[in-house]
């Protein structure tokens, strides 16, 4: 796993460009591209979180959009009650409270659903993570107070001392710093003793059990960490769009996250960021041509799966095995 940091220099260069180029655009009057980059960075955080379990743990979760959505609602709901009353215990615009809640709710949902879904493997796991995400989707849709399926505008962003999320530059820098920090943390974790157990369980589970690891516990902890990371990304996303809706948790969103992780390079630190860039750029270019941009996008996905040699799973191992 010498190459675990991705592709070396080019990846570091990518990170530097990802930081500088949007700022240049902003100061030359193209504020739109800064917004785009902020969204990209937030999605990249979620993809890094997903990659922790999917890439390093081999757990194919098709429900990670739920964590993003929960994180966003953890910002929207307290802000809503602060402004419109009710539920005093929750009402707040304090950013630390919002982000703490988002991380906590993400972790808790991961703990509860992971405890059940990690008991099974393969297709079962894929379908069950999907079903639990859909459960949250229908749950928020059924709550009229928070707008049901119309969603809810967040009138006030999370408040922090000294910084303001209303300022696009500050927001972008916060998001970028979060991404860098989380990537560093994930890098430390996958190379730690915990990470070795997680990766070993992906490589050969029965072997890990026979040398004495209760793999279920380690996977559950990894799943909780992943949920917490995505909850955090969700809190950023809620603040960024200033709008929450069940649509954020639609399962096609989970599919998009998987797309980023897998095409970017599974089980690498920089891979998910590459994937997020590829996704945003594709979306931007294709949707510029046609409103039906899902058609070429979907077609590309089908063709990549069908004609990549040995399939996606060889991409999964490929780069590292050579």
């Amino acid at each position: 796993m010498r190459n675990i940091l991705g592709k070396g220099l080019s990846s570091w260069g990518m990170m530097v460009l990802l930081l500088i180029v949007p700022l240049i655009f902003y100061y030359t009057g193209n504020a739109f591209y800064l917004d785009l980059a902020t969204r990209l960075v937030i999605l990249a955080i979620a993809a890094v979180g997903l990659n922790f379990v999917l890439g390093f743990g081999g757990l194919i979760s098709f429900g990670h959009a739920a964590f993003l959505g929960l994180g966003a609602y953890a910002v929207g709901i307290p802000a809503y009650h602060e402004i419109y009353g009710g539920w005093d215990a929750l009402a707040s615009t304090n950013g630390f409270f919002h982000f703490g809640l988002a991380i906590g709710v993400g972790a808790l949902f991961a703990l509860v659903t992971g405890a059940i879904s990690l008991k099974v493997k393969g297709v079962h796991f894929i379908m069950i993570t999907m079903a639990f995400a859909q459960m949250i989707y229908y749950l928020v849709m059924s709550i009229e107070e928070y707008g049901g399926d119309d969603g809810l505008v967040i009138d006030m962003r999370s408040e922090f001392p000294l910084i303001s999320l209303d300022d696009p530059i500050q927001f972008f820098l916060i998001a970028f710093a979060s991404l860098a920090l989380i990537m560093w943390l994930v890098h430390r974790m996958v190379n730690s003793r915990f990470g070795m157990v997680l990766r070993g369980s992906k490589g050969n589970e029965s072997r890990m059990i026979s040398i004495g690891y209760p793999t279920y516990r380690y996977r559950l902890v990894a799943y909780v960490i992943s949920g917490a990371i995505c909850g955090y990304a969700g809190a950023l996303l809620g603040n960024f769009t200033a709008f929450i809706s069940p649509e954020m948790m639609d399962w096609s969103r989970s599919g998009n996250l998987m797309f980023m992780v897998i095409l970017g390079g599974v089980a690498t630190i920089f891979g998910p960021v590459w994937g997020a860039i590829a996704f945003i750029v594709l979306e931007e270019i294709l949707s510029g041509f046609t409103v039906y941009w899902h058609l070429p996008f979907g077609l590309m996905l089908v063709l990549v799966v069908m004609f990549s040699r040995g399939g996606i799973s060889s991409l999964l191992r490929g780069k590292e095995d050579k």
């Binding site: 096609s252 797309f259 897998i262 996008f297 979907g298 799966v305």
Partner: peptide
């Protein structure tokens, strides 16, 4: 002949199409 991850991603693309 592929594994389930391929099935899921391939048919996810097919849904979009």
């Amino acid at each position: 002949e592929r594994d389930h991850l391929d099935h899921v991603l391939g048919t996810f693309g097919a849904i979009l199409v």
